[in-house]
Amino acid sequence: MKYPISFHLNGKIVSLEVSTQETLLDALRQRLGLTGAKEACNEGNCGACTVLLNSAPVYACMVLAVEVDGSAVETVEGMEGEELHPLQKALIDQHGLQCGYCSPGILLTAQALLAHNSRPNKTQIREALAGNLCRCTGYTDIIKAVQVASRARR
């Protein structure tokens, strides 16, 4: 079944027809060409596909595209403005990535965290990011990056 939907994507309105089988992740990656959100487990276990839905981090692989009609979605492609977002910059500088497959999802969860709590401590960062797996880095440098970014923001 096809349904027309429209939603805010990184601040712009997009409209498209989606089938009920499509997830938000499918729509972003295959229909809208935004491959920043990664498809990994595709079953809600890893966080590589994390996007913000009405400012809240969700697994895009577990949200149906029809459900987002009328919502606001933010992806990694919307993070940078003129310059890199402080979180992106800090992730680079603190070496919080290796293969980088987890990075877009981690950045969005961290962005949501900083929106709630501008000065999170280490425990708060770990807990907020518990739904994002990284097989490569061992997390320490990601935590450091979030702390550095939180200080960089005014």
Binding site: L34, G36, E77, L84, D93
Partner: peptide, 11 residues
Amino acid sequence: PRIEAEAKVTG
């Protein structure tokens, strides 16, 4: 930083 880091963090 890794030489490909920026491309990775911007998606």
